[in-house]
């Protein structure tokens, strides 16, 4: 009897899970398989097997440059996002005048379409944009700085687009922190700076890290932003798209091989990052 109801319950659970699983298999797993198979076909053919696509890329110094660029952009912008988010969260937590506005501001880059943001950033940081006007007219620089289509510019744009994840998570972790810890440390003789260093930062580290994982993933997989603001800098996503967007006929197998490498790299990096994240608190 109970065996029977158990089976019934399991069946119901399975039926409830099945729509989500169907979506997963149909729209993710199967497409990934298609990409994988395509990456193992010789270019332009639908049969035959080869590892040539992978071999070609892994031995290509240009491709290695692309991987380095992708990692550089993702890591730098993640790091800068943390540097921005921590002081921002520390200030907003005290609820200064206008803190609601600043909180809303944090949400802007992830709710407004990224491409529009990118367009505005190009205008703002351009040689005739407000930033350069400020440098020329207020700080009396001789010539405008070139920001757009440079590596610096790309990092600034990445941070603008992806820091929100880190900031929101850091802020919510910080707000969940019992103020008694800080009070205890202060009474025990710690200066505000020491409280920050020995108590607050270690305690919100898990929050910072889990937010920065999101920033990292977004930055690593970034496509639209580098596509229109990257100029000659092409991280992996853009390089993949160029294989099918520029070459005629489109190089699907090459693109697929690159995509598989990219997916593998991201998964490996994520596992590594999670290891750090899950490490028991030191």
């Amino acid at each position: 009897m109970s065996h029977f109801t158990n089976k019934r319950q399991n069946l119901i659970t399975f039926l409830l899970l099945s729509p989500g699983l169907a979506g997963f298999f149909g729209l993710f797993f199967y497409p990934m398989l298609v990409t994988l198979f395509r990456s193992l076909r010789p270019e332009g053919q639908t049969s035959g097997w080869t590892l040539g696509n992978y071999a070609a890329f892994l031995s290509d110094p240009d491709f290695r440059g692309i991987i380095w660029l992708t990692f550089f952009l993702a890591i730098t912008s993640t790091f800068l996002s943390i540097l921005l988010s921590v002081p921002l969260a520390l200030l907003l937590r005290r609820k200064p005048v206008g803190h609601r506005l600043f909180r809303l501001t944090i949400l802007v880059p992830i709710t407004v379409p990224g491409l529009i943001g990118a367009l505005g950033l190009l205008l703002f940081w351009g040689s005739r944009g407000w930033f350069n006007l400020l440098l020329l007219q207020v700080f009396r620089l001789k010539a405008p700085l070139t920001i757009n289509y440079t590596l610096t510019g790309l990092v600034i744009f990445y941070v603008w687009h992806y820091f929100s994840y880190t900031a929101i998570t850091t802020l919510s972790t910080l707000e969940g922190l019992d103020p008694a810890f800080e009070e205890a440390a202060r009474v025990a003789g710690a200066t505000p700076w020491q409280v920050l260093r020995y108590i607050v930062i270690p305690l919100i580290m898990p929050g910072i890290l889990s937010g920065s994982v999101l920033t990292f993933m977004a930055a690593f997989g970034a496509f639209s932003i580098p596509l229109i603001t990257g100029g000659n800098y092409r991280p992996l996503s853009v390089a993949i798209y160029k294989q099918i967007g520029i070459f005629i006929p489109a190089r699907w197998s090459a693109a697929s091989a690159m995509a598989m490498i990219m997916a593998a790299l991201q998964v490996v990096f994520l596992i590594f990052y999670m290891r750090i994240l899950r490490r028991p608190m030191a």
């Binding site: 019992d178 008694a180 205890a184 440390a185 009474v187 025990a188 003789g189 270690p202 305690l203």
Partner: peptide, 26 residues
């Protein structure tokens, strides 16, 4: 921090990321 006081809290407020030794050592 310059008042040289000791305080005990209702919710203990022990630093969760430190051992008992490190807490007392703080």
């Amino acid at each position: 921090h310059k008042r040289e006081l000791g305080m005990v809290f209702q919710n203990f407020a022990l630093f969760p990321h430190m051992t008992v030794y490190e807490n007392v050592e703080f």
